[in-house]
Computed example of a mutant assay.
Amino acid sequence: MAALAFFVCAWLMFEAVVDYSPLRFRSLSGLMAERRREWMLTLADRDLRMIDTGIVAGLQQGSAYFGSASILAIGGCFALFGSTDAVLQIYRDIPFIEPVPRGAYELKVFGLTTICVYGFFKFGWAYRLFNYCSILIGGVSHTQDAPPEERRAAALRAAEMNIVASRHFTAGMRAIFFSLAYIGWFVGPWVLIGSTVFVVLVLARRQFFSRARSILIA
């Protein structure tokens, strides 16, 4: 239970730092949010927007892909529930892993299922928000049809919708990474702690020390 509490706290603290603390403006996601605003302001000054609608469609397809993958993962979790006896026998056959009670194993599978369901809801909502973003893009007037202030306001409105959608998509991706860390609990509590630390370090590096981030501040 202590290892599980460490896992949950690490996830929540990482999310708080990246999404809500002052450091969010220095993260890769925060820097990309500014680029999304620049994108929409550029969009407001041009009349042909086929490239922009293609980009949004690609973002939607990414959300749909990972949403479908989450559904498959949920199905796999239910398959684990149905294979409890076989899995418990595997635990008994592996010499360096202590036998796991049925109730503890089912609790672990339930937790993994919950993470996958959470990820599915995030990807599904991101898909819907990208759809809203495309509608707001369609509402940005052409250069000859509206004053610059009105076009700028409409473009920034579309940008904020795009940013919110990207945050939900990122939260869904984060759920996938932490679900991989959670699998360590099936081996043991210390493995769960180690895999959680590893995932947090990987995600922190990508947000604050990656090559992708250095490109944005160059």
Rank of each mutant, 00 (worst) to 15 (best):
75 G>Y: 03
81 F>S: 08
57 A>T: 11
48 L>F: 13
82 G>E: 08
72 L>R: 03
83 S>W: 12
43 L>I: 11
76 G>R: 04
46 R>P: 06
45 D>W: 12
44 A>I: 09
64 A>P: 01
89 Q>C: 13
70 S>H: 01
72 L>K: 02
48 L>E: 14
64 A>V: 06
45 D>Q: 15
83 S>F: 12
87 V>N: 07
71 I>K: 01
82 G>R: 09
86 A>C: 10
52 D>F: 06
58 G>Q: 08
46 R>L: 08
66 F>Y: 05
74 I>S: 04
89 Q>S: 12
60 Q>T: 06
75 G>A: 06
46 R>Q: 14
56 V>M: 06
60 Q>R: 08
89 Q>N: 13
56 V>Y: 04
47 D>E: 15
89 Q>Y: 11
43 L>E: 06
45 D>E: 15
80 L>C: 10
71 I>H: 01
66 F>P: 00
89 Q>G: 13
56 V>E: 01
69 A>N: 02
54 G>Q: 08
59 L>T: 00
90 I>H: 11
78 F>E: 05
67 G>R: 00
52 D>R: 03
69 A>P: 00
79 A>V: 08
56 V>K: 00
57 A>W: 10
52 D>N: 10
76 G>Y: 03
63 S>K: 00
75 G>E: 02
81 F>Q: 10
71 I>F: 06
48 L>M: 14
90 I>P: 09
69 A>C: 09
50 M>D: 15
65 Y>V: 09
51 I>T: 14
78 F>R: 05
90 I>F: 12
82 G>H: 10
60 Q>L: 12
78 F>L: 11
59 L>N: 03
51 I>N: 15
